[in-house]
Amino acid sequence: MDRRLFVRHCLMASAMGPLLPKTLLASSPTDRLTALRDEPLRRVAFGSCNDQTKRQDHWTWIAREDPQLWIWLGDNIYADRATLGQRREWYRLLKTNAAYQKFIDQVPVLGMWDDHDYYNENADGSYAEKDGSKALLLEFMDVAYDNPVRERPGVFQSYAFGPSGRRTQVILLDLRYFQDKNRTRRSLLGELQWQFLEEEILQSTADLFLIGSSLNVSSPVAVSSLEGWRAFPEEQKRLYNLLAATDKPCILLSGDRHMGEIYRIVLPSGKPVYEVMSSGLTHAVGVKLPSPERLGEMVGRKNFGFLQIDWTDVGPEVQIRLQSAERAEVYHARGANFSR
């Protein structure tokens, strides 16, 4: 970071005031994330649906797994129809929580939003103050001030970790900023984001892709207020075609539905892709929906997701786990088989 960016970083951090307590300003989340870039990812934790007004004991259980990286998958706070000032205070409440503060002092964090932290349930790109909401999210995530995401619309991002042969690319999608529910031209990602995603995948030297989608990708059920890629069939097909265009293994990470599930999707090309839906951290439900791709049972209790990645001479071996956010218990574990 050059001197001008450093000064800008300090001034903007100072302007955020209560959102960034002194203990966090003294440390450097950005530096911790940068230091991780050269390391092969082996332990990745992720989750969604975190009500900041509820107990935050789950951070202790997640920390026990010693993750190298935490990925927020949306609904990081609940601030429906809040003003930007109110939303800022909700972020501050979470960021100053002792358990979460201790966690992020140790673990680098990435993430994007979903509807409840973006603005309101099922909100789309018509939200007038979405750029202000974006600024608050990026501050909460401690996104570096020289990160390209700050200079373009939306909050989609991409990060590469590890050396050649053990490189993981983490791509975070934005399903809110560009979403258009117009019946004649329904759009989820928008063309700018599609161009970004296609370039990131087709030009990447990664050996494993982790793609964060706040909404469920593969479930055949997406009706009324229950959102999912299924409600945007052309975009779902476009995503599947893009994933089929790379021979590298892909794992989709999703949230939103207040339950946990693991899926194995076989694309029309015959390529298998896994999806892990982890939701929620502070509240969950046990509504079982039909899904032919689901592996094992649905998890209707508070949970987080975890990937154990072992790097071999022939590629990554990945164990996918859904774990309790309340105790030392693994609800569901599967080894990913990327063979056709």
Rank of each mutant, 00 (worst) to 15 (best):
residue 192 L to T: 13
residue 145 Y to S: 01
residue 110 L to S: 00
residue 256 D to I: 02
residue 56 Q to Y: 08
residue 297 E to K: 14
residue 334 R to S: 08
residue 29 P to L: 03
residue 328 A to N: 13
residue 25 L to M: 15
residue 47 G to W: 05
residue 196 F to N: 03
residue 165 G to F: 01
residue 157 Q to K: 09
residue 24 L to M: 13
residue 116 H to T: 07
residue 239 L to F: 09
residue 212 G to V: 04
residue 255 G to N: 08
residue 64 R to S: 15
residue 142 D to Y: 00
residue 192 L to I: 11
residue 334 R to K: 10
residue 245 A to T: 07
residue 110 L to C: 03
residue 65 E to P: 00
residue 34 T to E: 14
residue 21 P to Q: 01
residue 125 G to L: 12
residue 204 S to I: 08
residue 13 A to S: 14
residue 19 L to D: 02
residue 321 R to P: 00
residue 335 G to L: 12
residue 279 S to M: 08
residue 289 L to H: 10
residue 206 A to D: 03
residue 90 W to T: 10
residue 86 Q to Y: 01
residue 337 N to P: 03
residue 175 L to Q: 13
residue 192 L to D: 07
residue 91 Y to K: 01
residue 6 F to Y: 09
residue 137 L to P: 02
residue 32 R to Y: 01
residue 169 Q to A: 08
residue 257 R to M: 02
residue 77 I to P: 10
residue 14 S to Q: 12
residue 90 W to E: 14
residue 318 V to Y: 02
residue 160 A to L: 08
residue 159 Y to K: 09
residue 129 E to I: 12
residue 94 L to E: 10
residue 94 L to P: 00
residue 64 R to D: 15
residue 144 A to R: 00
residue 68 Q to L: 12
residue 30 T to A: 11
residue 30 T to Q: 11
residue 321 R to A: 15
residue 70 W to H: 06
residue 164 S to F: 04
residue 266 V to K: 08
residue 310 D to E: 13
residue 319 Q to T: 14
residue 270 G to N: 07
residue 112 M to E: 05
residue 294 R to N: 07
residue 96 T to N: 14
residue 193 Q to E: 03
residue 143 V to A: 10
residue 22 K to R: 11
residue 162 G to I: 06
residue 90 W to R: 15
residue 285 V to M: 07
residue 84 L to D: 00
residue 121 E to T: 13
residue 335 G to I: 11
residue 310 D to S: 12
residue 243 L to D: 05
residue 11 L to E: 03
residue 73 L to F: 01
residue 199 E to A: 13
residue 211 I to L: 04
residue 324 S to T: 02
residue 43 R to S: 11
residue 299 V to K: 08
residue 18 P to S: 14
residue 70 W to D: 06
residue 16 M to F: 06
residue 99 A to W: 01
residue 44 V to D: 04
residue 277 M to G: 03
residue 237 K to W: 10
residue 297 E to C: 10
residue 316 P to S: 13
residue 61 W to E: 03
residue 105 D to W: 02
residue 64 R to K: 15
residue 216 N to M: 04
residue 110 L to E: 00
residue 176 R to Q: 11
residue 246 T to K: 07
residue 37 R to F: 09
residue 293 E to Q: 13
residue 114 D to G: 08
residue 14 S to I: 08
residue 108 P to I: 06
residue 271 K to D: 09
residue 5 L to M: 15
residue 103 F to N: 12
residue 24 L to P: 00
residue 194 W to F: 06
residue 31 D to N: 11
residue 333 A to F: 02
residue 283 H to D: 12
residue 258 H to D: 12
residue 182 N to H: 13
residue 67 P to N: 06
residue 157 Q to P: 05
residue 174 D to Q: 06
residue 327 R to L: 09
residue 54 K to W: 08
residue 313 D to M: 12
residue 234 E to L: 14
residue 64 R to I: 01
residue 235 E to N: 02
residue 296 G to W: 04
residue 235 E to M: 08
residue 165 G to V: 04
